[in-house]
Every structure is written in structure tokens, then in C-alpha cells.
Nucleic acid binder design. Structure first.
Lengths: 331, 331
DNA sequence: CTGAAAGCGCTTACAG
DNA sequence: CTGAAAGCGCTTACAG
């Protein structure tokens, strides 16, 4: 195998000289030698050993992307896209991405230390473990979509509250007065809760009720749908906390013989690709996943480059994407 | 930082003794010492340095997952699922997955050597570079969905041809006599070509024509749709090479005022989750992505464990998944 | 401009 | 059962 030593021997120089050429350390080697060494590198296809570099220097040029452990963490298109973008951005910066699915906070620490990663980006909810994670790993860490109240944490998230508000405003404008929310808005999922809170606040200000019965932690069954959408004051629109949920809901609504949007309107949140392709095309609150991924990656690199950089909380905007799944109700 | 040396000093033993305890090398250390050392490890949260291990031993316990470079390689749900499953399986085996998006064959070699990965799994089409990749990297390599004619290559793929046959048989059974194929069936995409060939062979045997005009490399525009589905012998069914394509096609068909499946039937290939959720639910050829991922991973580990293992070509079965996007045409 | 020495944190291989 | 030595392939830090 080709190593610095092999090349040094062949070129009749020291290992250090080769190292300097490999790392492009400016004007410390004569041009002639430089050429000769580069030729050998080219010919032998020499690739520096990253483990050796990591061991001898302070940097591994490794970055971890951390997801909660699940059966298939990339099933959910939002996560898949985030990982796809982030891993590409990391590579474009000449770093190597490590994708980890972790079960608990102990595993986070173990993984991060094992390969001495230079930084990590967290997807999904690690709010409760964040304190421990930060204490155990004194490297740059970027969280996404986190709602931890911890200070000094760098997070890239969304204005979920505003998203909820936009959804409510739109449904009200379209004449809906009896609406329901689909999503588990517990302490476990602060993102969903923020969306619901924004949604509920606008309804409240408009004097429109959102009864507890219309807060659905799960996709309603067909009989529940019939109850909700039947009776004196039928629900005319559902706001689902995520596009995937909205699409599943549409399927159930159709199974209960309801036409969308004629009998019943549906809104989602995320603006995934499929939301444009599904039928009817989904009206939703759009977020820019690529931008979220790029800001998360860039912020991480800022912290790697300059460890003195203060923690920052970035909140990205959301916007209404109007398509065909919401009907205008005549007054 | 805690290292073997730190622990050794505290326990008053040699570095080697600690190393043996850490690696659970059986009955070479007295129980008393073992306990004491384990306590220190526990208390200090010691995690072995993988770079050092990689450098001094023959194994890195790193496995690369290699995708073709693209804007967002995980946009396509099939790839996202493969990466999700494979990376989990790799972790479950106590290895670390490295996700690479590579532009060309040189980059493959660079990546694989840089971290001295113990093996690699390739997703997507590297058929033409396979020879070079294999020559440059004498480590276990597993390809998926490859159609390289090279011998001695381990590949996990699908019976794409049979999938095409099943689609044709089904459409014929449902009374369709004028059908079209959507997909770029060039040399560049042998998977698509195999699907088309299976499809075409059954039609031919049944005496049903598949004119060139009905071979659509891309999703047809609305005016093309009107031409295809109008006239004397209108196309009554489309077979798309992938579910995503089928779903996009359905959108175009609807835009051209065609009802599915009343006016026009559609079949896909893959059986992704969304294919069940879309409307109408998509009739498709199902593949088991989890199984493909698990066999690819297991086969790779077999080769890592036993380098003498002969190359093998695994062909997974496919099956018809009947849903609602194909209409039965009365005779 | 170039190099010899030391060291990163482990494991391998051998000695006792 | 345990340990001292050498070495993996680099970089850091220093000397000239």
C-alpha cells in the first residue's frame, strides 16, 4: 500500500515534504520536488489515511447526522430529504457524513466519541436529552426543529406557530367555521403543539370554537369520521400537522364516502413533493427543507471554524401553498 | 480524555490488560481485576478511539453506502428506504455506516480508501464502472439492482423481467388490448429495460401489439395524452416503470380530463407506501425493499467474515399488488 | 526550504 | 494470566 513513507523513499525526500505537498501547504517545497511528488501520487493513486490523520491531528473531518432510532428512520420523507441534503452539503465541504440512528442519550455520546466527530446535526426530538448531550460532548452541535428551553443551544427550526396561524386564517377565509386538528400535540412533540397553538389562537380571536372533540391525536376511523362530519354542526375542514398525515386522512375520508374537497376539506403541513402529486393536490403550509438543511450545515461549520461563535436560534419562515384540497364555502 | 493508558495507570495494570477487558477477550484476566477495570470504564465513560483501532488493526468496522451523486439522492423513496434499512442493519451489527454520494469511479476509490472501509454497498447504476471499482478496491463489495454482465460480482436484484410479465398478464386479463409503457428503457437503465422486455414478451405471445409510439421515455404531455387516448384505438392502460412515475402520470391524465381508472388505467412498479395512499390506490408490482436491503447487508457481512465466499447473484421475487387504478374492460 | 523526533491511542505478536 | 515492545500512518512542534 502506498503511504507517505513509500512516496518519500521513491522521491528521495522526507515524509514531511510529501505531507506538505499532499496538504498543499504553500511555498515550503521547491517546485521541482513538488512536481515529482505529485507525479508519484498520481501514478500510485495514493489516498491519505484518514484514521491516521484523525489520530495525529485535532480534526477527524467527520460529522454525525443523528436520528432517533426507528424501524426505518428514512421512511418519513421529511427526514429522508434532510439527510439527503445535509449529507451532500457535508461532502461538498470535504467532510464525511456519518448517519446514526440512536436509541438514547448514552448512545449519542458513545457514537460521537468513538470516531471523534468534529460536529453533529440532530434531526427530530432530543429535547429532554439535550442538556446531557451538550455536557458530555464539547463539540459543535446543531439541533433542528427543537423546542428545548435550554439556552446556549444552536437550533434551526420553523415558525410552526405562524404555520398554524396561516392555516386557520386560510380556512376562515374560505368560510369554514367548524374545523378539526389532527396530530398528537403533547409535550413529546412540541412542534405539533406549536402548530396547534397557532391554529387555535387565530380561531379563538375570530370567535370560532375548537372543541376538544375536534382535537384528534390520531387519524380518525371511519365511524369517527361519520360522527365528526355528520350531525348539526359537521366538521368541514381538517388541519393535519403533517402532509403525510393529511394524505392518510384523505384516504380515510374517501373510505367514509366523503369527497374532497366537496364534502370535506383538508390541509397539511410541510409541502412535500407528494403533496403536489396526490389527488386532490394538497393545500398546505410550506417549509423549505433544503434551506433548513443548508442553514443547519452552515451554522455547524461556522462553529467548527470558530468555536467562539455564540449559539444561535434560527427560525425559518413558512408560507401558505394553495392547491385543491380546500373548498370555499359560500356564505 | 480517558484512554487505555489512563485506565491502566489507575488500575495499576498494563495497557494490554485493559485492552483485553474492553474487548472481552475471554478468561485472560482475573475476575477481580476485570471488575475493577470495568468500574473505571463505567465511571469515566470511556469509549475506545475507533481511529486508533482502525490504524492498528486490520479492520475499521466502517461500511460505505454508495449512491450516485445527485441534487438530493434521497428524494426518491426507494433510495431513502434502502439507505434507512441498510444503515440500521449495519449499526445493528456494531459497524458504522458511511453514506457517500459519488460523482464518478475515481471518487469511489478515494472514498473507500480514505477511511479504509471494510466493505461497501452500491445503490443504483454503477454497471459501467464496476470493473474498475472492483480492481481498485479489493474489499467485499455488494451491488444492488445491477445488470452488469461481469462475472464474480455479488449483486442483489429483482426479477424485473417477471415484474414486466406480471403487469402484462394482469392488464390482458383485465381486458386491455392497447397499452403503453412509460420509462426510459435505454442501456443506461437496464432495470427499466428488463421491465419493458418482460412486459413486451407477454404481449407479443398474446398477439397484442406494442407499437413504438406507445413506448414513452417520459411522462406524456397533455396533448400527447389526448393523442394516445383518443382516436380509433385509444390506449386504455399505462404501465409505468416506477410508482413515482405512475403517480406523476396519473396527475397528467387527470389534467387531461381523464378519470382513472374509468377512462384510463395505470400500473406502477415498486409498491411504495404512497402507492397505497394515493388516489386511486395504485395497482403495482411489489418488491420487498426491506428484504433487498437485508440480503444485501447480510451478504456483505458474509464476505467480510469469510473472504473466500464466492460471489453470488441474488434475484428477489416480485408480485402483483392489485388495488384500484386498473379497470376491467368488459368483453 | 527541509527533516528528525515524538506522539496520537490503539492492537499485534511475542516473551515470560 | 500479564506485560514490554514495536508499529499502524499520519501531524505537530521544533531545529537547522
Amino acid at each position: 500500500m502506498t503511504t507517505l513513507k513509500t512516496i518519500a523513499e521513491e522521491a528521495g525526500v522526507s515524509v514531511m515534504t510529501v505531507s506538505r505537498v499532499v496538504n498543499d501547504i504553500p511555498s515550503r517545497v521547491s517546485d521541482a520536488k513538488r512536481r515529482q511528488i505529485k507525479d508519484i501520487i498520481e501514478r500510485t493513486g495514493y489516498v491519505p489515511n484518514s484514521s491516521a490523520r484523525s489520530l495525529s491531528s485535532r480534526f477527524s473531518k467527520l460529522i454525525a447526522i443523528i436520528l432517533p432510532y426507528s424501524y426505518n428512520a428514512l421512511d418519513y420523507p421529511h427526514n429522508a430529504q434532510m439527510v439527503g441534503y445535509i449529507s451532500r452539503f457535508i461532502q461538498d465541504m470535504d467532510y464525511t457524513p456519518l448517519v446514526y440512528q440512536v436509541k438514547d442519550y448514552y448512545e449519542v455520546t458513545k457514537r460521537l466519541r468513538s470516531w471523534k466527530v468534529d460536529g453533529a446535526i440532530f434531526l427530530g426530538m432530543f429535547d429532554s436529552d439535550m442538556k446531557n448531550i451538550k455536557e458530555d460532548n464539547r463539540i459543535p452541535l446543531v439541533f433542528t426543529d427543537s423546542y428545548s428551553t435550554m439556552r446556549q443551544v444552536t437550533n434551526v427550526g420553523l415558525d410552526d406557530y405562524k404555520g398554524g396561524e396561516l392555516a386557520a386564517e386560510y380556512l376562515l377565509n374560505m368560510g369554514h367555521r367548524n374545523v378539526a386538528f389532527v396530530g398528537e400535540a403533547s409535550h413529546e412533540s412540541p412542534v405539533v403543539r406549536a402548530r396547534l397553538q397557532g391554529f387555535a389562537s387565530v380561531l379563538r380571536d375570530a370567535g370560532v370554537k375548537l372543541p376538544v372533540d375536534n382535537l384528534l391525536p390520531d387519524i380518525p376511523s371511519q365511524s369517527e369520521i361519520r360522527t365528526l362530519c355528520g350531525g348539526d354542526e359537521p366538521v368541514t375542514a381538517f388541519f393535519a400537522h403533517a402532509d403525510i398525515t393529511a394524505i392518510q386522512l384523505m384516504k380515510e375520508l374517501r373510505a367514509a364516502d366523503l369527497d374532497i374537497p366537496k364534502d370535506c376539506s383538508v390541509m397539511g403541513f410541510d409541502n412535500l413533493q407528494i403533496s403536489e402529486l396526490c389527488y386532490p393536490a394538497l393545500t398546505t403550509i410550506g417549509q423549505n427543507i433544503e434551506k433548513k438543511a443548508s442553514i443547519a450545515t452552515n451554522t455547524l461549520f461556522q462553529h467548527i471554524t470558530n468555536p467562539e461563535n455564540p449559539a444561535q436560534n434560527v427560525v425559518l419562515d413558512v408560507h401558505l401553498v394553495e392547491r385543491e384540497s380546500v373548498r370555499r364555502i359560500p356564505v
